[in-house]
Simulated assay, not measured.
Amino acid sequence: MTSYWRQDAPSNLVELAVGKCLIAEMDQDRWTTLAELTGTKDQTHKHPRLLRALRFGDDDYDGHVYEMVPIILGAEVTWGEPYSSQDVQTRFPRLAMVADFIDLPAWLALNEPDLYERLLSDDGNQATLPDGTVLSQAEAIAVRLGVAEMRRQVERIRRDYASDPEAAIGQAKELIESTCKTILDITGDSDEKHDVPALVKQTLLHLGLDPSQVTSGPDERAAKRLLGGVASILTGAAELRNARGTGHGRSGAELVNPSVARMAVGVVLPAVIFLIESWEALVAMPSEPPLADSVPVIAARIGGTLRHETYGEGQVLNSEATRHGTVVSVDFGPRIGKRRVLIHGK
């Protein structure tokens, strides 16, 4: 079985994973071999502390390992500088070589299963996962609105996208329903008896985005087509879920074509983001929360990952309940380090 790097794998978590494995597995001979393999003999052997700290078991060894990680991986940016928006194998040209040398997938599966799940996939179809920007934006929206169910639905889409397309379509449909009900509930304009097509219609009318509400003008025809497309995407995904997705127990029904599942989920996410952003603009809500109120998107499970508005994704080390929320210690990787984050509410 081959493991594939997820398209949305965060670079800081890749560095964290590689660093953890190097710290656990490397001795001086293996460092020498890895240096020759990656062409980093000078940086490795001339490092003032790396091998010496290893030899004497000094406390600063871990930090020096993390300093070497981007060098070994062939990163073009210098330590402390942010990465541009690229997939991890472009950012780290020697990632595959290093991961193979240290048996990184196997080590993560045995020692850091949550990191493995976040960074790697057993299915090559994962390479076509909706890019991390769209997923992250959908997660951030759920945080701004404080709707835990929306957060769970986005994370389940991330989990099931390649391995269980029927479940991913089901979660996409539930996300549409949660989005519409959230917008209408907040305004007191909800009807729980509506099915999804009716909810979508009511939401578009409420936001002034129904094609029938487009006023005359030079762009009227194009605007009507685009808005009609949004409605078709959202209702079509719900109909696909009813026919092939989870939730209705259609035993014996032909499994949905994986490419259709990827297409459906891939277009639903931007459409949902469009609805929420339109609603926020309508009610003049701030698009970003104040930094002090930044909270993670993914549940704070020890060993799992969470997303912070400023620091990105990190691995949860521990948590402690307080009167004012849960304080979570998170390792955001060597470039950011460990931070404590206060999560308000559940």
Results as ranks from 00 to 15, higher is better:
4 Y>P: 03
7 Q>K: 14
9 A>W: 00
14 V>W: 01
15 E>I: 13
16 L>D: 11
17 A>S: 13
18 V>Q: 01
20 K>T: 05
23 I>C: 15
27 D>N: 15
30 R>V: 09
34 L>P: 09
36 E>A: 15
36 E>V: 14
37 L>G: 12
38 T>Q: 07
39 G>V: 12
40 T>H: 12
47 H>E: 06
55 R>Q: 12
55 R>E: 11
61 Y>K: 10
63 G>A: 08
65 V>G: 04
69 V>W: 07
70 P>L: 14
71 I>S: 10
74 G>T: 11
74 G>A: 09
75 A>R: 04
78 T>E: 13
79 W>S: 06
82 P>H: 02
83 Y>M: 08
85 S>H: 01
85 S>D: 05
94 R>Y: 14
97 M>S: 11
98 V>Q: 06
100 D>P: 04
101 F>M: 12
103 D>S: 13
109 A>R: 14
110 L>F: 01
112 E>P: 02
116 Y>W: 02
118 R>T: 05
119 L>M: 02
125 N>R: 15
127 A>N: 06
133 T>Y: 15
136 S>W: 02
137 Q>L: 14
140 A>N: 13
144 R>A: 09
145 L>Q: 03
145 L>R: 09
148 A>F: 04
149 E>C: 06
150 M>H: 06
151 R>A: 14
154 V>H: 02
163 S>C: 11
163 S>M: 08
166 E>W: 01
166 E>V: 05
168 A>W: 03
169 I>R: 04
169 I>Q: 07
170 G>Q: 03
170 G>K: 05
171 Q>L: 04
173 K>E: 12
178 S>I: 00
178 S>R: 00
180 C>F: 05
183 I>Q: 11
184 L>D: 01
188 G>Y: 10
191 D>R: 12
197 P>T: 04
198 A>H: 10
201 K>P: 07
209 L>Q: 13
216 S>C: 04
217 G>P: 01
218 P>L: 15
219 D>H: 06
220 E>K: 11
220 E>G: 10
220 E>H: 09
221 R>N: 12
223 A>K: 13
228 G>W: 01
228 G>E: 03
229 G>M: 00
231 A>K: 15
232 S>A: 15
234 L>A: 12
236 G>P: 08
236 G>E: 10
239 E>W: 01
240 L>K: 10
242 N>S: 13
242 N>T: 15
243 A>M: 04
247 G>I: 01
248 H>T: 01
252 G>I: 00
256 V>W: 01
257 N>W: 00
259 S>A: 10
261 A>T: 05
262 R>K: 03
265 V>K: 05
268 V>G: 10
269 L>V: 03
269 L>D: 06
270 P>H: 11
272 V>I: 15
273 I>A: 11
277 E>G: 04
281 A>K: 13
282 L>E: 09
303 G>S: 06
303 G>M: 06
306 L>R: 02
308 H>W: 02
312 G>P: 03
312 G>C: 02
314 G>F: 04
318 N>Y: 07
319 S>Q: 13
320 E>A: 12
321 A>G: 01
324 H>P: 01
324 H>T: 09
331 D>K: 02
333 G>T: 04
333 G>W: 00
335 R>K: 15
339 R>G: 01
343 I>G: 07
346 K>C: 04
346 K>I: 04
